[in-house]
Nucleic acid binder design. Structure first.
Lengths: 140, 140
DNA sequence: TATTGTTATACTCTATAACTATA
DNA sequence: TATAGTTATAGAGTATAACAATA
């Protein structure tokens, strides 16, 4: 049976993405973290003091949807907030957040390595350029 | 500001996918169809008589989640069912389904072309192989 | 025993509108 | 006027458990 979808980049992109994210979420279960939460923690690690809105813009998460995400992580003691002016709050990792991220990051990294490992070595250097181009393209 | 995520294939995959699917869904709005529904209709076009369960397996949609999808499209007169044995039903496009798919497919195709168009010509031949490899890899 | 279609359910993700308080 | 954080809400997508009818 011929599959009419296997030659469509967009469809492959979707299937590859959902499969990869489902796998990653499964590996992150022991930490009780989802992939988007880890991405957020990683962003905080390199950009301490960033505001909730700015983080949402970088991660493509709506302001409104950042609220429960940050609240959840703050409640668990992984993230702290500090007022910078009357309406903004700088976000930072707590020590517990840093230590949790350290372990979660190892899971992410092995997951990323496994993703790359099965791409034929010849194609491997093309993975980042191709994905980056596809990402930018879809902005239009 | 350095972004700790831009060099992670899995993260790029996710961002590229959600952006592309959001764009496609927007373009499909006039047809009142979502990308997964079009994928299903395309599968029916090449595999008439396929059962709901089999289609779900190919599309990675759970049996239970196929129920409302098929019911919705049947209710709109795009899909018809025909019993093949006591428990299975073969699914087919109706004439209306075929004609809707014809137009929706044009949207999908231009969307796919736009996706490819912004990938540098040198990398373009790598897109399908890379995505296919990434997909297979995440199965593990 | 295994499979098909189904119901019910729950959780996550995403999107929009509107409010407040500040800038 | 525009922005940050928030609330409320709705629509998708996804996942699991269970059941009846059938193979």
């Amino acid at each position: 049976m011929k599959d009419p979808l296997r030659h469509l980049p967009g469809y492959l992109l979707k299937r590859a993405s959902t499969a990869a994210m489902a796998g990653l979420n499964r590996k992150l279960e022991p930490f009780n973290l989802r992939h988007a939460e880890v991405a957020f923690l990683m962003l905080l690690a390199t950009t301490p003091g960033i505001t909730q809105s700015a983080a949402g813009r970088l991660l493509d998460i709506q302001r409104a949807n950042m609220v429960p995400l940050v609240a959840r992580l703050q409640k668990r003691g992984l993230v702290s907030r500090q007022r910078v002016d009357g309406r903004s709050q700088g976000l930072m990792l707590t020590p517990a957040g840093r230590s949790t991220l350290l372990r979660a990051r190892r899971v992410v990294e092995t997951s990323e390595e496994e993703l790359l490992a099965r791409v034929p070595a010849r194609l491997r250097p093309m993975v980042l350029p191709v994905l980056t181009a596809l990402w930018k393209s879809s902005t239009a």
